[in-house]
Amino acid sequence: MYPKIILDLIEDLKRLPGIGEKTAERLALHLITWDNQDLNHFGNNLINLKDKIKYCQTCGLLTDHDICQICQDETRTNDQIMVVSDSKDVFSIEKTNTFHGKYHILGGLIDFSKGIEPKDLNFDQLKLRIKDNIEIIIATNSTVEGELTAQYIKSLYKDDNIIVSRLGYGLPVGADLKYADELTLIKAVENRQKY
C-alpha cells in the first residue's frame, strides 16, 4: 500500500522503544509534512548522535565533551558517588535537584542469563574513583538484575573504609528509575539507607 521508502521508515521507527506499528505509521506520515529544512535538521541531528555523543571519561555519562558537566562541576561533593545502570537514570535523578554528588554509570546490570558479567560493566573505572571515607550510593533498579548488581558492589567494598548505601525503597519493586516520577525519586534519594 505505501511506497517502499515509507515502509522502510515505518520499520525503522518501530525499532524505537515503545513505538508500535500504528505509532510508527503515524510518525512516518507526519514527517512527510515537514519542509526540507526541518527534515534536513532532523536528519543531521540523527547523524550527529554517533559523531558527537560519547561517554564521559570519568563517570561514563553520555556527553558531548571528554568530561561531562557533572564531573567538571566543582560545587558538587566528591564524597558521594551514586552508581547507576545507565545515563537515563542520571537524567531522571538530576531532574529532582536533590543529589549533589557525582555519578558513576555501569553501562548495564549484571545479568548472567544474557551473558553480562561484572567484567562487561564499568567496574574498573569505579575502583579507580573510590577512596577512603567516601559514600557509594547504589541506585540500581529493584529488579533481580539490579539487586544482583547491588550485592556485587557491596561485596567489592565490604572490607574497606567505605560507606555503601542503597536508595530508599520509595521505588516500587520491579520499577525502572527512568519511569519513576520526581517525587518518588526525591524520597528514594532522601531515604537511602546503609547497605
Rank of each mutant, 00 (worst) to 15 (best):
M1Q: 11
L7H: 08
I10D: 07
D12F: 08
D12Y: 09
K14W: 07
R15T: 11
K22M: 07
T23G: 04
R26V: 06
L27I: 11
L29D: 03
I32Y: 10
D38C: 03
F42C: 08
G43M: 13
N45K: 11
I47L: 13
N48I: 03
K50R: 15
D51E: 15
K52Y: 10
C56D: 05
Q57R: 14
C59G: 10
C59I: 08
C59Q: 06
G60N: 01
D66P: 07
I67H: 05
C68F: 00
I70M: 01
C71A: 10
Q80W: 01
V84G: 02
D89N: 12
D89K: 08
V90L: 05
V90E: 03
F91W: 12
S92G: 10
I93K: 00
I93R: 00
I93L: 14
T96S: 14
F99W: 06
Y103G: 04
H104D: 09
I105M: 06
G107F: 10
K119Q: 14
N122W: 07
F123L: 01
D124Q: 14
L126R: 05
D132K: 13
D132S: 13
I137W: 00
A139K: 05
A139H: 05
T140D: 03
T140Y: 02
V144Y: 12
Y152Q: 03
I153M: 03
K154R: 13
L156Y: 06
K158G: 00
K158V: 08
D160T: 11
D160Y: 12
I163H: 04
I163N: 07
G168E: 04
P172E: 14
V173S: 14
D176A: 14
K178P: 00
D181R: 04
L183D: 13
L183G: 01
T184N: 01
N191G: 15
Q193V: 14
Q193K: 15
K194I: 15
